[in-house]
């Protein structure tokens, strides 16, 4: 453990902690845009600078490790002025169209601009303008809103191992994009979307479905592969408008393309909405639950009487819940009277 003081408060943190970690651990908030606790430190936004006694310049707290006896001040008039300046600079090259931005309500930049009362007028100047939009069906990339925090680049490399995007060009023209400015063609896991602190990366199918006002969040388990990622359905009215995952879930907040974007089948117009019975003509006809279930029960009873229970079988599903599967086999075994029950585990 290393002892240091932060804002005159004596704290003790594990060796190799960064100043930012030490501060957060002790409930001291330090603003940052590029830092993400699950990614390696970047040190690009410079908002997390703090003053360290004996250091000639402010240091980035996200990349500086603590040392014994260090004296840190996270908020001095000078530091706050510098932070304000950085925010002015970021906003001077930002569309500031929060009214229509998907990220409004969950935008870290918006929050900081609000907290610091910064409008981006002081250094108003040229803004990056990009006409081209990406043709992929999953991820909307509005690079004018990109603040080049590098989180997407890091998550794509460090977590996903794909390296689909990187910094390109130089200077003010720096831009994050796939090689040769191609359309994104990757695993579309959307990890980049989940770590983007602004509205630069959003889900295409989220557009104008509902931001954060009046949206309910429901934690559930992904219906796709066996990994069982915990995901959060964002629901507005009776529609899932977005899916995310929380960083403290067993899957650490990471999802794949199916988990993140594959929820749209729920609202498919193809969904079955009425019980159907096949008529003599061969056509299906809509019917009531009572009619359908009585018809089914009658058939099962008839076959059981004529051929025995073992002439009936049941196939359950790895897609259904534990409770449903339990009940299904109980029904087949106890209700019908046969062990002819299986599911698709092996397929």
């Amino acid at each position: 453990m290393v002892s240091l003081t932060i804002n005159n408060k004596k704290v003790s943190v594990p060796e190799d902690s960064t100043i930012l970690e030490a501060a957060n651990r002790n409930g001291i908030k330090v603003p940052t845009l590029c830092h993400h606790p699950q990614l390696t430190p970047f040190g690009g936004c410079r908002l997390c600078v703090v003053s360290v006694k004996g250091m000639p310049k402010p240091v980035a707290s996200c990349t500086t490790t603590v040392s014994e006896g260090m004296e840190v001040a996270t908020s001095t008039p000078e530091i706050e002025n510098f932070r304000k300046l950085v925010l002015e600079l970021i906003l001077s090259d930002h569309p500031n169209d929060c009214m229509t931005c998907e990220a409004t309500g969950s935008c870290a930049l918006q929050e900081l601009a609000y907290a610091y009362g910064v409008k981006g007028q002081e250094y108003a100047g040229e803004r990056r303008v990009y006409a081209k939009r990406d043709g992929n069906p999953f991820i909307e990339r509005d690079m004018e809103k990109c603040i080049l925090c590098g989180r997407c680049v890091k998550v794509c490399d460090e977590v996903q191992g794909v390296e689909a995007i990187d910094f390109t060009y130089r200077g003010f023209r720096s831009k994050i994009c796939p090689s040769y400015e191609d359309d994104l063609d990757c695993e579309f896991c959307g990890q980049c979307v989940s770590v983007c602190p602004t509205g630069a990366l959003t889900g295409k199918q989220w557009a104008r479905k509902g931001r954060y006002e009046g949206v309910r969040e429901v934690d559930t388990t992904c219906p796709y592969c066996g990994t069982g990622c915990t995901l959060t359905a964002h629901v507005k009215g009776n529609e899932i408008v977005r899916v995310s995952s929380k960083p403290w879930s067993p899957n650490e907040g990471w999802l794949c393309v199916k988990g993140r974007f594959g929820y749209k089948f729920v609202n498919s117009p193809d969904r079955l909405t009425k019980p159907l019975i096949r008529r003599a003509s061969g056509e299906f006809e809509e019917t009531s639950w009572t009619a359908a279930l009585e018809y089914t029960a009658a058939w099962f009873k008839k076959i059981r009487e004529q051929h025995g229970a073992d002439a009936i079988g049941g196939l359950s599903s790895a897609r259904c819940t534990n409770e449903e599967n339990y009940l299904f086999q109980k029904f087949i075994r106890a209700g019908v009277g046969t062990n002819n029950v299986d599911h698709c585990a092996r397929l």
Binding site: C222, Y224, C225, N325, Y326, Q329, C344, A345
Partner: peptide, 16 residues
């Protein structure tokens, strides 16, 4: 496991 609840369906004995 390939599917979300293969484990559960097996545990619950949807097996003959």
């Amino acid at each position: 496991r390939g599917q979300n609840n293969v484990q559960g369906a097996s545990d619950a004995a949807c097996l003959p």
